[in-house]
């Protein structure tokens, strides 16, 4: 299996025709999908909510009515609104409940929670009722839960929108670690700065793939992104414009490095 997601010639008889998509096993893909209906279809198929007529293979399993449960074992989806992760009286109970039912031992759970508390400084919210949490805190807990469980494919559907800057950085560190341990990650987002966090970027528009390229080659295709009214990450945009004036001759991903090279 080289591709974890394989979609061939998807049609819905209306506005999607001959849509094909391949996502490699072990990749970290960012999908920019501005108002694209095909995104909703993708989410439905990835979570095995709908069964398509065309060829869809997820984690090496064909998506049909028999295999729905099989696919759901491999995939974890995290949406923007994390409310459905919370059912117990306190956050700690919720964490224990979720992790226990996903097959973690008590020892593992305690060590996971300890690491989580150490990294994110969340001790004071663990004993609160989930209803008292802010949306950002709920999102953080949901991400912690989703990343603590072993899964082959993790799909984030705008799951980090409410996080602040530092927390987001730490969350992406965790995601990178997971990615190294062979979890494929698909990140649907509208925030262009998130592109830099991934390895590959896919741009969907009008239910077609406009471009699918590694992030490090993005600078070559700047025009394709701007033509489709996608805002580039700040540092890429700046690199692009400075190289137009021949001030620099390569692309940067770090502000401090760029400043250091500009004024030596």
């Amino acid at each position: 299996m080289t591709n974890i997601v394989e979609i061939k010639n998807l049609n819905n008889g209306d506005n999607i025709s001959d849509f094909s998509l391949n996502i490699k096993l072990g990749s970290f893909s960012t999908i920019l999908s501005s108002n694209s209906i095909v995104k909703d279809y993708l989410i439905d198929y990835l979570s095995a909510k709908k069964v398509p007529k065309s060829y869809v293979k997820i984690c090496g399993v064909f998506l049909n009515s028999k295999n729905i449960k099989e696919i759901r074992k491999h995939v974890l989806i995290l949406g923007e609104n994390p409310d459905n992760f919370f059912i117990c009286n306190t956050v700690l109970e919720d964490i224990n409940f979720f992790l226990k039912h996903n097959g973690l031992s008590d020892l593992e759970i305690t060590s996971k929670i300890n690491n989580f508390v150490r990294d994110f400084d969340v001790e004071k919210i663990l004993n609160l009722s989930p209803t008292l949490l802010s949306c950002g805190q709920k999102q953080l807990i949901a991400i912690f839960l989703a990343t603590s469980v072993k899964t082959d494919l993790l799909v984030l559907d705008n799951a980090t929108t409410m996080l602040d800057f530092n927390t987001k950085e730490k969350v992406y560190d965790i995601l990178h670690k997971l990615n190294k341990n062979k979890t494929t990650i698909i990140n649907f987002t509208n925030d262009s700065e998130d592109i830099l966090k991934g390895v590959e970027v896919i741009l969907l528009k009008d239910n077609k793939i406009i471009i699918q390229t590694p992030v490090k080659n993005m600078l070559n295709d700047v025009k394709i992104f701007t033509d489709n009214s996608i805002r580039l990450p700040f540092i890429i945009e700046l690199s692009d414009k400075l190289s137009y004036y021949n001030i620099i001759n390569k692309s940067y991903t770090d502000i401090t490095k760029l400043v250091n090279d500009l004024w030596k």
């Binding site: 602040d164 800057f165 530092n166 927390t167 700065e193 700040f234 502000i255 401090t256 500009l262 004024w263």
Partner: peptide
């Protein structure tokens, strides 16, 4: 205080701090 800064201002601040520009 864990608050991010607009990228454009971050660039200007880093230039000022690192290179006094």
């Amino acid at each position: 205080n864990n608050i991010s800064i607009p990228k454009i201002i971050e660039f200007e601040s880093i230039a000022l701090r690192e290179k006094k520009i």
